[in-house]
């Protein structure tokens, strides 16, 4: 329960991002603010100061003020990190959640079709899953992102612009399909041998009816259990891709891109990198606990992640 409350709080915080931007921080989170100024103790100071350390190259953005403006400080373009983090959270959450839905739906279809129809269909689908399974997930996601992220993609009538967040959603959704499809296929294989399914076959039920009335209701809890866990994994994957600058594209933000921005400032303004990481970790912990809770409620016998 606590996990759900934390998750809802984080979602509400991110939904309130425009309010924070307009009324609390009074700034624009997406345009660079290199020559901006900030008033502290009655003195006007520039948001970015020329760095005095080291070679004197680069800039030293304002640090965390812990007050309404620049709560967490500014990034190297003088933008308010707190406001960007709230907006970035929207992207992280949206990408994590939608890609988890895509993944679970695709995996459900693949797993059910492979398990139910068996024989040649199963052989083809299982071998394809085996190949994806042996392909390190991150590597596959990175390869796809590098090829696709900077070029607009046209599939039939739909055109995806370069830098659209649809691309990371699709890529992340697809690469994790084997992880969910495999257990579902196994479950469908054993369901098909059960008496109630055999009885329905004996009663002359057609394939579609069997799938809809007998198989799907029994597989659905497993798919639902996977949803929060996949959301957590997908958010982490998205942030990793964004960290490698092949996920969400600037000026758009996600927690991963902000951590990436923060790496350059790590030793002078560590908050830029630390804060979004903490948000990400809290969200992922909440989602994982939620997943464990959902599993205990729906499907106590389910075995995910090895034995637990």
């Amino acid at each position: 329960m606590a996990a759900l409350v934390v998750l809802i709080l984080i979602i509400l915080m991110c939904l309130a991002a425009p309010l924070y931007e307009n009324y609390v921080a009074r700034t624009d989170a997406f345009t660079s603010n290199v020559n901006g100024t900030y008033v502290v103790d009655g003195q006007t100071k520039p948001v970015l100061e020329a760095s005095t350390e080291g070679l004197g190259l680069g800039v030293n953005p304002i640090g965390p003020t812990w007050s309404s403006q620049f709560f967490l400080g500014a990034d190297n373009q003088g933008r308010d990190v707190m406001a960007r983090m709230l907006f970035g959270g929207r992207n992280s959450l949206v990408i994590g959640f939608t890609s988890a839905i895509i993944c679970c739906v695709l995996a459900g279809i693949v797993g059910i079709v492979a398990g139910y129809f068996g024989n040649a269909v199963d052989a083809v689908l299982s071998r394809a899953l085996d190949v994806l399974w042996a392909f390190p997930v991150y590597l596959l996601a990175i390869c796809l992102s590098v090829v696709l992220i900077n070029s607009s993609l046209t599939i039939g009538p739909v055109t995806l612009n370069s830098g659209s967040i649809i691309l990371p959603i699709l890529i992340i959704g697809i690469v994790y399909v084997p992880y969910v499809a495999r257990p579902i296929r196994g479950q469908v294989l054993s369901l098909r041998e059960r008496e109630f399914v055999q009885a329905a076959v004996g009663a002359g039920a057609a394939d579609l009816r069997l799938l809809r009335r007998e198989i799907l209701p029994n597989v659905l809890p497993t798919i639902i259990v996977f949803l929060p866990l996949m959301t957590a994994i997908n958010m982490l994957t998205e942030s990793a891709l964004s960290f490698l600058s092949i996920g969400v594209q600037p000026p758009d933000a996600s927690w991963g891109t902000i951590i990436n921005d923060g790496v350059g400032l790590l030793y002078t303004r560590p908050m830029v990198a630390i804060a979004p990481g903490i948000m990400l970790a809290i969200t992922a912990v909440a989602l994982n606990l939620l997943g464990d809770g959902v599993r205990d409620a729906l499907d106590p016998k389910a075995r995910l992640r090895g034995g637990v």
Partner: peptide
Amino acid sequence: LGVIGVSLPVYWLGEVVNL
């Protein structure tokens, strides 16, 4: 420990360790 382990972004943890 198990939940935290699967929830931490590895690159972020690395940066924090560096810091």
